[in-house]
Design a protein around this nucleic acid. Structure first.
Lengths: 109, 109
DNA sequence: TGAATATATGAACAATTATTCATATATTAT
DNA sequence: ATAATATATGAATAATTGTTCATATATTCA
């Protein structure tokens, strides 16, 4: 019924899911945003500290945080004048790691 | 030495790796390319069949295959007039699945 | 060699996007 | 209320990118 050269048993995502996939990848596809994500691995970070750590203007960071927030890659918590951002969940770090694994394997071949 | 609010034990990727990460994500960040990738899960596909399956012009597909090839997301094999493309390795499907997992979890919250 | 088929590619155009600059909003302390 | 600090945001600009159209290259067959 179905041999190796056949992918009928694969569930092809719906068009909506394809678009959501592409949109999610797009948010990861900028080095500034990736640096920002790494800045808050394992720790909450306020905007000012992120700016310092990734060496970007406060405004540029804030714009990118908005993008990351809308894509639900990060969450935030307000405390006084400050806003603390952190990764949305463990998936985010996992996604980064899976792609790193791919890149590192490509290098050895 | 190092508590919960500290990420000193995390290896922050080098700037080069950050750029490679972003570039790799960028190649995934287009729905046409994602459709093309799905078209060849578990099977080699020639360009003409990909065009038909994803409903894109031959030229558009060929341009995108070049992008996917340069990023080493796919590999190819020539046979007569035809060129057969397939996913570079198992990482590619894994990367897609990890992001799908994230999207699906977000939906439930 | 010439025709037919499969794939690749260069140029051009429209659309998207990251940053900067200026300014707005929000919170706290005096 | 005012000043100071933290963050957000709108407009504008420069740069990047996906598709189309036309054409080039490569392979097979008659």
């Amino acid at each position: 019924m179905c041999n190796d050269k056949c992918n009928n048993n694969i569930v092809i995502p719906t068009d909506d899911m394809i678009i959501e996939l592409a949109d999610t990848f797009k948010v990861f596809s900028d080095s500034s945003r990736i640096k920002i994500l790494y800045s808050m691995i394992n720790q909450e970070m306020c905007v000012r500290h992120i700016s310092q750590k990734v060496n970007m203007s406060q405004s540029a960071v804030s714009h990118q945080l908005k993008t990351l927030k809308q894509a639900r890659l990060i969450k935030y918590r307000k405390e006084g004048k400050e806003v603390y951002y952190s990764l949305d969940d463990e998936h985010i770090e996992k996604i980064l790691n899976v792609v790193i694994d791919h890149i590192k394997e490509e290098r050895n071949e």
